[in-house]
Computed example of a mutant assay.
Amino acid sequence: MKPGASAGPDLSWQPLYRIGGYAALVFVVLVLVPVALVFAAPLPPTQGRAVLEYIAANRAVYLVELVSFVGLAVPALLVFGALAVALSRVNKALAAVGGLFGIVSETIALALGSSPQSLHGGLVVLADSYAVAGTDAERAGLIAAAEALIAATNAVSWGGILTAAGILVLSLVMWQGLFGRALAVVGLFAGVLGVVSEALRPLIGPAYLVYGLLLPLWFAWVGWKLLKIGAANRAPAP
């Protein structure tokens, strides 16, 4: 069968499509929660001493942001898996590659347990130690450790690049058929912009937010499409 020749997705996978659709909605919620918290507390700073003092003063907000940004990798795994299966009848090879990129990227994000917004679980431990440190030498060592963690967290992320690459490849499949050209265009733009933004993240500063805003839009749109497929009536057996 040629790529794009199939009329639609394999409906025997409808439960997976529904799971992927709901997972996409969870992803969007986990993005919106930290955004809403910006109004409750300032963004985490990017310097060692400042971030340790910030965590001490805004511990609950910081933990919610950390859990949200790192935890969104879990629903993203399900979305990439469901989307790859849904697109497999359009182009099996590209759908598999795009799904693999996405799944591997989110696995890396979970393994690292960090996010590019100066969020890392290790900083919470360092902040606790900093609060009870008795000497300037102890505090200096903790600040140095915090700065090292922040530098690693905000550096170029191969996981982030793979996420954008997965979106790009899967959107190329959408362009060939299924899910509509409009979503394909958004995904292609988000994928290209994401690869560039992740590769140049230490240099572009706030411009990274453009890609950050496109991500929840793409996931929400994909989730809606997956839910529609998951709820479609299956053709009766001949």
Rank of each mutant, 00 (worst) to 15 (best):
R59I: 01
M1T: 14
A137C: 00
G177T: 10
V90Y: 05
L119T: 03
F101T: 00
A182K: 08
K2S: 13
P116T: 10
V125R: 00
S105G: 13
A96H: 10
G113Y: 09
D128L: 04
A146G: 06
A231Y: 04
V169A: 03
D128G: 06
V26F: 10
F80S: 08
G21I: 06
V125P: 07
G194L: 10
F179V: 01
A84P: 08
Q14N: 01
A137W: 02
R139Y: 00
A182R: 12
G121T: 06
A151E: 12
P42K: 06
A182Q: 07
G20C: 06
A184S: 15
V64E: 01
G159T: 04
L87K: 09
V90I: 14
P44S: 10
L16W: 15
Y208E: 04
T107Q: 08
G99M: 01
A95M: 00
G102D: 10
I108K: 05
L30K: 08
S157V: 03
I161F: 12
V85S: 06
V222F: 12
A184W: 13
L227I: 03
L66R: 02
A40G: 08
V61C: 04
I161C: 01
R49D: 13
F179E: 07
A133P: 05
G159A: 07
Q14S: 11
G205V: 00
V90P: 04
L227T: 01
W158E: 03
A165E: 07
R201A: 13
A109Y: 02
P202D: 06
K225I: 08
V31Q: 10
L226G: 00
P9F: 06
S129D: 11
A23S: 15
G177E: 00
V173L: 02
K92V: 07
S118F: 01
L25C: 12
P45E: 02
P236W: 12
L215G: 03
F219S: 07
F189C: 09
N233K: 13
L112E: 15
G191E: 10
A231P: 07
Y208L: 11
V156P: 08
G191M: 03
